[in-house]
């Protein structure tokens, strides 16, 4: 490489600072990479991936009329594989109506309230997981782009602050494990980098579907901290930071995880 090219590369490196402890883009790995061959095979085969049952349920809900407006999702959005392509990869996204970021589940519930005039689905309800699984599947193979909107900058920063803050009786920050020790094992289980490429997921430990919020609450309880409430602003900020941290990684939702 010529000296000028080396200088240019060095300057480029300086222009894109990686915060202390952060994983370099080339070193990022999805939770899929840490799984056993059996679990990978289960995810790769749609007829074996249990999350696809939730997707099927989502397809039914997509075309079912609901609420006082008696409208289905498809009445406004049409075919899910067209209108929802790439949508999950950019969530959480800024909602002008809420003047705050909303995650995919909250977006579905905003639609239910505003356009279907129906009651929102409860967090982690079968229906909400089914619709978000269906929508997330339409981003499979696409790069994560969430967090780029400048209106989200303060929430992304808040999310990172939470990520590096020590908390709970065990006094651990997310970063202590998922930035600094992701290649090691906690009681025999791979720690992983905490890259949220596949949510909602079918988690073998749960024997069921769950959102990123549920997964984060599990980790918080693990460090004996007070888990954030579902949909709390800090919860959304943390989700948003994690998605922006995974910028450019490939979506593999709905994923199987141990």
């Amino acid at each position: 490489m010529r000296p000028q090219a080396l200088l240019a590369a060095a300057l480029l490196g300086m222009a894109l600072p990686v915060l202390a402890g952060e994983i370099a883009p080339s070193g990022r790995r999805s939770g899929y990479d840490f799984m056993s061959a059996d679990s990978k095979a289960m995810q790769d085969d749609d007829t074996a991936n249990p999350a696809m049952l939730s997707v099927l349920e989502g397809e039914t809900l997509w075309t079912t009329k609901a609420g006082a407006a008696d409208k289905s999702c498809s009445d406004c959005h049409g075919a899910v594989d067209v209108s929802m392509k790439g949508v999950a990869a950019r969530y959480p996204a800024f909602s002008a109506a809420s003047a705050a970021p909303v995650d995919l589940g909250q977006r579905v519930n905003l639609c239910r309230r505003q356009h279907q005039e129906a009651d929102p689905f409860a967090p982690e309800s079968r229906e909400l997981l089914a619709l978000t699984a269906l929508i997330a599947k339409q981003s499979r193979g696409m790069p994560i782009t969430a967090g780029g909107d400048p209106r989200l900058a303060s929430s992304v920063a808040r999310g990172r602050e939470l990520f590096v803050q020590r908390q709970g009786q065990l006094n651990l920050a997310c970063a202590n494990c998922h930035d600094d020790n992701w290649d090691k094992h906690l009681a025999g289980s791979a720690i992983t980098q905490g890259q949220p490429t596949g949510y909602p997921i079918y988690r073998l430990e749960w024997q069921g579907m769950g959102s990123l919020q549920r997964r984060l609450r599990g980790c918080m309880t693990g460090i004996r901290a007070q888990a954030f409430d579902f949909d709390a602003p800090d919860m959304i900020a943390l989700e948003l930071y994690l998605m922006s941290r995974a910028h450019g990684m490939t979506m593999d939702a709905p994923a199987v995880r141990p």
């Binding site: 020590r166 908390q167 065990l170 600094d180 918080m220 901290a225 007070q226």
Partner: peptide, 20 residues
Amino acid sequence: TIMPSYYRIDGLTRVGSAWR
């Protein structure tokens, strides 16, 4: 260190109610 302090109750953040 990332090792928790096993006999300390001060200087901690957002400890869950069961462990506070």
